[in-house]
Design a protein around this nucleic acid. Structure first.
Lengths: 220, 220
DNA sequence: ATATTACTGTTGCATAAGCAACAAATTACA
DNA sequence: TGTAATTTGTTGCTTATGCAACAGTAATAT
């Protein structure tokens, strides 16, 4: 379970032995859920940190209409909880098992308050938690950087630029579908497709399916 | 210095006596700056947490062209540092004294690592830092909520709704100028003015200068 | 008091972008 | 393997929005 993290890692720098001891100290035992089962609902003032030790789950928002959006995909090693969800409104947010999975719940207060037991890596845990939050914030900030451009073209190029520098390459694969990209940059999908076509024709990028190549720099 | 925080507070729940003791433990002595003086530059991997104990300062981004944007306004009790700035690129970011001011620098590692001295409120400090970061993240998230609407009208109404619920009133004062609002929602100012006029005419809101009143709910 | 700067309010024009609707291609899945 | 569901690619129409440019007002500085 110690890979697959997007940003940092909740237990990096902590040995499996230390991890086990800490779980005892936290008085946390793993709970099992079968596919489709609701793991929990997000509640306003609750501050539990949960870890998906094994399996896949999703954080979903259910609207009054009954329609749902996936807010986050969780897999082995992922963490979730109110602390990582930066909205005041937790209405309709729940976590649902996508496969059979094992989840551990930790008390936020216990994480924050240094304990008197043998948790030698407690401060490491806190630092990791901090990195995770900072990383989430950085992602939000990145999203704002993209969204704060006026035109579809500028949004697209800003997004491509970011992906390109993340991959250290002018060639990269989109992490999600073009439809999802349209959602991410908050523009109409058909309008985006039209713009992509133009950008291609003007020779700035090449793109087919999810493969993007930046051909020349787009200034401003 | 214990007020004036936007979100939470670095030293809330910590007595002045405990604060003084901690400053000794942190080996941090206050430094003085006169108006206009550069307090520091943001550097890529540096992680110093700084506190404006007295006076006013600004975090500014200076572009290659020489033009500047104020990223943040700091006053008595404000904190700043790389940890609170969620971009990988720190180029051209500096903190400048706006008036004579006193600043304290704390080592991030020392904050995170629980110390063996008499800092009884160390874990409180960590929790406060955590609240501050979470709060900043929540603000970013709020900004995304506004920006991810397609039209100027929707962005405006989303923004007004948020302000209204923050003030617990349908009547509130904009925290900045209309020009700045146009920047915040990332639309052309004149287009925004045109839309505001329409929204007024249709009776959704009333607005003159910076006073906004929501008259009827805007659905969707 | 006067100059300077910033902010507010308005308009014409060209076009970018939203919406709706459809066909083709791709992927998922039973 | 075959069928459904999703994604991609395209177009016509209408309108919202960006841009430029200007005048009037408020705020700030000298």
């Amino acid at each position: 379970m110690f890979d697959n993290f997007h940003c940092s890692h909740m237990f990096s720098g902590i040995s499996p032995e230390s991890y086990s001891r800490m779980m005892v100290c936290f008085n946390s035992s793993p709970k099992k859920y079968s596919a489709g089962e609701t793991i929990c609902f997000y509640e306003p003032k609750k501050r539990t940190v949960a870890i998906v030790e094994k399996g896949r789950a999703v954080v979903v928002k259910t609207f009054y209409s009954g329609s749902q959006t996936i807010l986050e995909q969780l897999s082995d090693g992922s963490i979730f909880g109110e602390v990582f969800y930066f909205h005041s409104n937790t209405d309709g947010i729940s976590v649902i098992a996508a496969s059979e999975c094992t989840v551990r719940f930790l008390d936020y207060e216990h994480i924050m308050t240094s304990c008197h037991n043998a948790c030698e890596h407690h401060s490491q845990l806190i630092q990791n938690l901090f990195s995770i939050i900072s990383c989430k914030a950085a992602e939000l900030s990145e999203h704002i950087d993209v969204l704060s451009h006026r035109t579809t073209r500028e949004k697209l190029m800003a997004y491509f630029q970011i992906q390109s520098s993340k991959n250290n390459s002018g060639k990269f694969k989109l992490p999600f579908s073009l439809s999802a990209l349209a959602d991410y940059i908050s523009v109409d999908r058909s309008a985006m497709m039209r713009e992509i076509k133009k950008i291609k024709e003007e020779g700035y990028i090449d793109i087919s399916q999810r493969e993007v190549t930046i051909l020349k720099d787009y200034i401003q």
